[in-house]
Amino acid sequence: MNAETRNGGVKTLGIKVPDALHAQFTLVAQLDGISLGDAALRAVELYVATKKAEPDFAARAKAALEEIEREAAARRGAIQGLFGADAPAAEAAEPTTSQARRRSGEASK
């Protein structure tokens, strides 16, 4: 299963590369018989694999996750502070398009 199938899409990455490095990159890709896009994808995959193999990577990832969870808890607390016991449930935090139109009066048009 490729990345496109797994996550439902792909992202475009645009980077600036110095001329000399671009020339080398182009040559290497040509020698391997692959496109620059495929070579860039392989480079990104190698970078991610290399970083994941670093001894402290898991600890840094765990710290980042804990920070995300702290920020989410702070935002949740702020919303609960605004609404008290009537705080909207997490599933209803973002209104659907039709809910947003109804609230703004557009649904009656």
Rank of each mutant, 00 (worst) to 15 (best):
residue 1 M to I: 07
residue 3 A to S: 06
residue 5 T to K: 08
residue 5 T to A: 15
residue 9 G to E: 13
residue 9 G to A: 13
residue 9 G to W: 14
residue 12 T to N: 11
residue 13 L to P: 06
residue 14 G to W: 15
residue 16 K to L: 14
residue 16 K to N: 13
residue 17 V to M: 11
residue 17 V to L: 13
residue 18 P to L: 07
residue 18 P to I: 10
residue 19 D to Y: 02
residue 19 D to C: 10
residue 20 A to H: 08
residue 21 L to Q: 10
residue 23 A to F: 10
residue 26 T to C: 08
residue 26 T to S: 14
residue 30 Q to A: 13
residue 31 L to C: 11
residue 32 D to Y: 09
residue 32 D to V: 05
residue 33 G to E: 00
residue 33 G to F: 09
residue 34 I to K: 00
residue 37 G to P: 12
residue 38 D to P: 01
residue 39 A to K: 12
residue 39 A to Y: 01
residue 40 A to F: 05
residue 41 L to V: 14
residue 42 R to T: 01
residue 43 A to N: 14
residue 44 V to L: 14
residue 45 E to Y: 09
residue 46 L to P: 04
residue 46 L to I: 10
residue 47 Y to C: 09
residue 47 Y to K: 10
residue 47 Y to R: 11
residue 49 A to T: 07
residue 50 T to R: 14
residue 51 K to Q: 12
residue 53 A to E: 07
residue 55 P to S: 15
residue 55 P to L: 08
residue 55 P to Q: 10
residue 56 D to K: 02
residue 56 D to N: 00
residue 57 F to H: 12
residue 58 A to F: 04
residue 59 A to K: 07
residue 60 R to W: 01
residue 61 A to Y: 06
residue 63 A to H: 05
residue 64 A to W: 06
residue 64 A to H: 12
residue 65 L to D: 03
residue 66 E to I: 10
residue 67 E to G: 07
residue 67 E to R: 05
residue 68 I to G: 04
residue 69 E to R: 11
residue 69 E to Y: 14
residue 70 R to K: 15
residue 71 E to R: 13
residue 71 E to M: 02
residue 73 A to H: 07
residue 74 A to Q: 07
residue 74 A to K: 02
residue 75 R to A: 13
residue 75 R to C: 08
residue 77 G to L: 06
residue 77 G to I: 05
residue 77 G to P: 02
residue 77 G to Y: 00
residue 78 A to C: 01
residue 78 A to W: 08
residue 79 I to Q: 08
residue 81 G to Y: 02
residue 81 G to Q: 01
residue 81 G to P: 00
residue 83 F to W: 09
residue 84 G to S: 00
residue 84 G to P: 01
residue 85 A to I: 14
residue 85 A to K: 15
residue 88 P to A: 06
residue 88 P to V: 12
residue 89 A to F: 08
residue 89 A to S: 02
residue 90 A to C: 08
residue 90 A to I: 05
residue 91 E to M: 00
residue 92 A to L: 03
residue 92 A to Y: 07
residue 93 A to L: 15
residue 94 E to V: 13
residue 95 P to H: 07
residue 95 P to V: 01
residue 96 T to G: 03
residue 96 T to D: 05
residue 97 T to Q: 15
residue 98 S to I: 04
residue 99 Q to G: 09
residue 100 A to K: 15
residue 101 R to S: 05
residue 101 R to T: 11
residue 102 R to E: 08
residue 104 S to H: 07
residue 106 E to P: 05
residue 107 A to M: 02
residue 107 A to K: 08
residue 108 S to P: 04
residue 109 K to E: 11
residue 109 K to G: 10
